[in-house]
């Protein structure tokens, strides 16, 4: 016999979860041509692209789920994995690369215990990624922490930026 969990909020929660994607779909008039902006909005709201939402988007737009999956995995900005609370992007454009972005990446990954291809820490606090070029080459090497660009970063500074976040301090730059 299946276990019964008290779940008075199940329905409400779940309707809320899909309500947002419905609003997005309605805004774009369920036009399959607008798949990329739709996925961008979904990611904005859900912080990543949950598979059941993608499936829902596919059926709503009347396109195969495999197509939506194909588009979602093609573009580097889409993530099918939940992202951490804090998002750290290390620029690896030419200027930043020449000025030592690799050392920053390594320092941060080591500090956060990220090994292999992992991008997000187990506690879901941090996601660390490289981006191809932020166009902030004059400030190389550049690091973006939660949408804020930091220029001329050294590995030590990068680590202290993270420490500030872990200690819950407001980033004051």
């Amino acid at each position: 016999m299946a276990g019964c969990a008290c779940a008075s909020q199940v329905g409400a929660n779940h309707e809320k979860r899909f309500q947002k994607v419905c609003e997005i779909l309605d805004y774009y008039e369920r036009n399959p041509r607008l798949l990329v902006p739709i996925l961008q909005q979904v990611q904005e709201v859900y912080h990543y692209l949950p598979s059941e939402i993608l499936e829902f988007v596919a059926t709503s737009l009347g396109v195969p789920t495999a197509h939506v999956f194909g588009v979602a995995t093609f573009y580097a900005h889409f993530s099918l994995e939940p992202k951490g609370k804090h998002h750290i992007k290390i620029c690896d454009g030419t200027a930043c690369h020449v000025k030592g972005s690799t050392a920053i990446l390594e320092a941060i990954r080591e500090k956060l215990n990220l090994s292999g291809s992992a991008k997000t820490t187990d506690d879901m606090l941090f996601t660390v990624e490289t981006v191809s070029c932020l166009g902030a080459c004059g400030l190389a090497p550049a690091v973006v922490v939660d949408e804020q660009v930091h220029g001329n970063v050294t590995p030590a500074q990068a680590l202290s930026l993270i420490e500030n976040l872990t200690e819950g301090k407001e980033e004051n730059q």
Binding site: A66, H67, F69, T73, F74
Partner: peptide, 18 residues
Amino acid sequence: GAIDFAYRGAQTVVTPAF
């Protein structure tokens, strides 16, 4: 459309969704 390309570049594969 049960299968499609997914990922890109050297990681490209043909696969069903997810």
